[in-house]
Design a protein around this nucleic acid. Structure first.
Lengths: 108, 108
DNA sequence: CGGGATCCGTGACGATACTG
DNA sequence: CAGTATCGTCACGGATCCCG
């Protein structure tokens, strides 16, 4: 996904969140509400390949939704967490979820 | 786009609105707030081909977001409008728009 | 451990021509 | 006018292997 500074604000946001694994990543980071390691994300989503996971993380980072911290220890460690900007997306995400439930598209 | 009764409510909604022209179509129908003809939609979005326009309209209709009415007169006429369900999406769409503006992704 | 490099299949999107 | 039918392209997602 390229950077899309679209004229339409809605499309701009949709573009940032479109990507097969971005919502699952977001949910994992939001629920845990703490720095989460790369390998933890992998365990949480067994079906994603490293290439794609890294790709989606890079895009979320580029768009200011998550933050990446690298600790170059002997055993390399990388942690991801939502930025405050990213956290603030929960407003419309919750509304989308409610809409979905109310209109019978989902069980949960 | 296939029907995606995803386990995740957010992804379900995203799936319904993902499609290059769905937001533009939604905006046109929302702003006008009346039945809009097929040809009018074409004029409003000159860069979309008939095949794609029809495709996106069919998906929006299938997902209960818009309604299609056909008047088989000598000069065939087809009108589209948002369902009440579709109209109620404006809640989170407006929030997305506001978020986008607040976080400096857009001018408008 | 947390990636990057390479190759590849598939499906969204589009151009164009035709039709009831 | 409001669509189908057909064909082509391209980029997203994925499998696999390699690296510091």
């Amino acid at each position: 996904m390229p950077v899309q500074r679209n004229e339409c604000p809605v499309e701009a946001v949709m573009s940032m969140l479109s990507g097969k694994w971005k919502i699952p990543i977001y949910r994992c980071l939001y629920k845990n509400n703490r720095p989460v390691r790369y390998s933890e994300l992998q365990r949480h989503m067994p079906d994603i390949s490293k290439k794609i996971l890294t790709e989606q993380l890079r895009e979320l980072e580029r768009d200011g939704i998550i933050e990446r911290k690298s600790y170059p220890e002997p055993r390399p460690r990388v942690e991801y967490m939502l930025t405050s900007s990213g956290r603030s997306m929960i407003g419309f995400l919750d509304m989308m979820s409610d809409w979905s439930v109310q209109h019978g598209w989902i069980n949960k």
